[in-house]
């Protein structure tokens, strides 16, 4: 069923949701948010697009196989855990890099924790979309 209102609103909402999902992901370290919920919000954007258009168009818009994204996410999370091995600390211990840090401040904190969260984001995003695409295709 094509609905003009839904299709029009979707154009705006998809972009908003995708930006919001990245915001939720980045915010997640210290505040509510994180990779899991970010991935869900990101997947919602494409689910909305699927409902407004079709599975095929959503797949075309995504360009890559969501199952591959999910598996890559698992790999990214695993690599983030392995990074602590280089500094001889136990598996999954967070490693931090404070870019442009001036005395007292933390500058731009980059960490394996964030990388792990990005892995989770990809795994959830890809996993949910794989499921939804498979379910929608049956109909």
């Amino acid at each position: 069923m094509q609905s003009l209102i839904l299709t029009t609103a979707t154009r705006l909402l998809v972009a908003l949701l995708l930006v919001f999902s990245v915001y939720a992901l980045l915010r997640g370290h210290n505040l509510p948010g994180g990779g899991f919920i970010g991935g869900l919000i990101g997947a919602t954007a494409f689910i909305l697009y699927t409902i407004a258009t079709s599975v095929r168009e959503a797949q075309a818009a995504l360009r890559v196989d969501p199952a591959n994204v999910a598996m890559l996410g698992v790999g990214v999370a695993g690599l983030a855990g392995l990074a602590s091995g280089f500094v001889n600390e136990p598996f999954l211990t967070g490693q931090w890099l404070f870019l442009f840090a001036e005395d007292g401040g933390k500058g731009l904190p980059l960490s394996t924790v964030l990388m792990f969260d990005i892995g989770v984001y990809m795994a959830v995003f890809g996993g949910i979309l794989t499921l939804v695409f498979a379910l929608e295709q049956e109909i």
Partner: peptide, 21 residues
């Protein structure tokens, strides 16, 4: 503190990722 118990977990995970891709 040892890394040895971690390897039997991380190896199958990475193998799963690569063999899926």
């Amino acid at each position: 503190m040892s890394w040895l118990p971690v390897y039997p977990l991380i190896i199958p995970v990475m193998t799963a990722v690569l063999s899926y891709l």
